[in-house]
Design a binder for these strands. Sequence first.
DNA 1: AAGCTACTGAAACAGTCGTGTCAGCGAGGG
DNA 2: CCCTCGCTGACACGACTGTTTCAGTAGCTT
Lengths: 209, 209
Amino acid sequence: MPEEPTTPTDPASSTAPAPSARHTELLEAAYGYALEHGLADLSLRPLATAIGSSPRVLMFLFGNKDGLVRALLARARRDELAFLDRLGEHPGPGEDDHRLADTVEHVWSWLAAAEHRPLLRLWAEAYARSLVEPDGAWAGFARATVDDWLAVLASHQPARERDGAAGAADRTVALAVLRGALLDLLATDDQVRTTDAVRRQAALLRGGL
Amino acid sequence: MPEEPTTPTDPASSTAPAPSARHTELLEAAYGYALEHGLADLSLRPLATAIGSSPRVLMFLFGNKDGLVRALLARARRDELAFLDRLGEHPGPGEDDHRLADTVEHVWSWLAAAEHRPLLRLWAEAYARSLVEPDGAWAGFARATVDDWLAVLASHQPARERDGAAGAADRTVALAVLRGALLDLLATDDQVRTTDAVRRQAALLRGGL
DNA sequence: AAGCTACTGAAACAGTCGTGTCAGCGAGGG
DNA sequence: CCCTCGCTGACACGACTGTTTCAGTAGCTT
């Protein structure tokens, strides 16, 4: 009885034990479903019928519901990390004049894009939930994204501004304004005001030093 | 059969139809419960037993679960508005030199206080949920708090900076950095880094103009 | 042909959910 | 005394939850 691939936490090997075509296929379908329905009141039967499967199969492939949610969260995080990695490539070697201001404006153009709205709503939901309920499938999600973003922002700071408390404060304020403006945008859909605000902040960052 | 006080939407009268001592008493108890358990998986039976009541009574006093959640959300918003009102009193008449920077630092000292952590977690949860599920009990929560805060920040801007797109952008960036830093603080509990960031932002706001 | 692996369908399990029903309590006013 | 008003307990209803059991089926390997 093989039962349960469940993608465990690295069995000594470096790569995960082959997600199996069907696994990724259903994960992708479930991800699409989660993007428009949210994760809060996700339940197996409606999801399964929507993606043309059955609760039995989801249990088989993901172990249990927590496994499914964890897989969906990881899937969402992959989208986020994909963008961050593309961001991270940008700074060429030896160049020192990457200002946080440029990065902020660039990141904002991605955050504000209408096609990313579902992903970012899902992100907000997972973030908030992992604050309220630090155990279970959501554990550490908020913390993880903060670290991801701060790391990538650090790589976009000039080397001599990167270290020390001042550098950390600069990254933190850049991240804060991006996330705050994102929350605003998600609630009000006021793209011009929020974009003006981010541009204003970028101007402040360039001016003061 | 009197059944259902349910606090309807203003029956022509200005004030609500007397919340009844028991109503407010149980609401307060339920609010305390929600502050530590969150609203996501709130359910009547555990809540009722925890606060020494019964589902029957909660149904009687709040109509249904949505009514209860709405009442809890309104209760949380009252805490928020109480602070905003105290903030709003500050600017004396005729004074024009209230800079947003001062307000930002003052608000942050309230947001960062450890005793407000449960309220702010609840706030984040309600905010995110109202984004994903714009109907039902959560409807409009995110939008409402954005408007509340922007209004109060506007009252703290010098009169000649208040109007126009530039003024709106200033308020928006102030709100954004506060909320972004709050999200960071809730996730990482790193009070010194987030506070440094807010102070840095206040310095930027004062310096640039 | 046999056997193993990956996957699937149907049905049932026990539990929880919100809600409704029917009755009954104590207190205050006529 | 009785009758209404605000509140409450006990219980059951139907719907839905995650999960399990049992029984497969299709494909590849030996």
